[in-house]
């Protein structure tokens, strides 16, 4: 069982978090909306079609930021899982849990936009390309993490297993990516499918970077909202348990 001081700390940290995050959400949300609006303007109106890929290049402005988030969110999850595992920081555990569904959603978006980009570029909806394949496996890892979280009711009991899974996944993602790369070059000559396409022109760089920043800001805002919900959920759980005890 927890000692009195541990219990106090566990209570104090979420309280401070709730106060701080409550003040942050609204301004961050406004900033996100402004950056996203600017990014969409650059992506749809203020940038020329690519000389090779034509208008399909506009899919890339969604696809690349999503793919970036799929990896970035996982890194956030892995770091907070490490903190949760080593320092037993309850907020770190809440952070990892709250981040996972957002990461899964953007990994899914990266996969579908990649497919929508692939059809006009390669003539097929799906290629077992090294990047698509490893992103698909990353998506499975996200789903596995969420499934593990969903099956364990007690959030404190779920902390350790979930953190271990996230960290094992973090170690494995580069290995999986490398193996899929190796497998891909073995089966398909790399020259057939050019994933990198033309070198990124500066006209593409502005919408790409703006939207990447916008997506990342969006992730942080939603992360805060979800973490707040999770802290409250745990508070509700603790309160109803206490009531049940008498």
């Amino acid at each position: 069982m927890l000692t009195a001081s541990q219990r106090l700390q566990a209570f104090a940290n979420p309280t401070r978090f709730m106060a701080l995050s409550g003040r942050l959400v609204a301004p961050l949300g406004v900033l996100t909306a402004v950056v996203m609006a600017a990014g969409l303007y650059f992506a749809l109106f203020a940038s020329p079609p690519d000389y090779q890929q034509g208008e399909t290049v506009r899919i890339m402005y969604i696809h690349v930021p999503s793919a970036w988030l799929s990896l970035f969110v996982y890194s956030v999850m892995a770091v907070s899982s490490g903190v949760a595992l080593v320092f037993r920081h309850p907020i770190a555990d809440v952070c990892a849990k709250a981040a996972a569904p957002i990461g899964a959603a953007f990994t899914f978006l990266a996969l579908v936009t990649g497919s929508l980009w692939g059809e006009p570029m390669w003539g097929t909806w799906w290629v077992w390309d090294a990047r698509l394949t490893s992103v698909l496996i990353l998506f499975f890892i996200y789903l596995g993490y969420m499934a593990l979280r969903a099956t364990i009711d007690d959030p404190h009991a779920a902390t350790r297993p979930a953190a271990v899974l996230a960290l094992v996944g973090f170690v494995n993602v580069p290995i999986i990516h490398y193996s899929v790369n190796w497998w891909n070059t073995l089966h398909q000559p790399a020259s057939v499918f050019r994933m990198d396409g033309p070198t990124v022109a500066s006209s593409m760089l502005v919408p790409l970077m703006t939207l990447a920043i916008g997506f990342t800001l969006f992730f942080f805002v939603m992360l805060l909202v979800r973490m707040r919900a999770e802290v409250l959920r745990r508070r509700v759980r603790a309160m109803s348990l206490r009531r049940a005890e008498g």
Binding site: L44, E55, I62, T113, L116
Partner: peptide, 10 residues
Amino acid sequence: AFVWPSYGLA
């Protein structure tokens, strides 16, 4: 048919 579904799904 490819660009708008991407933005719609996003």
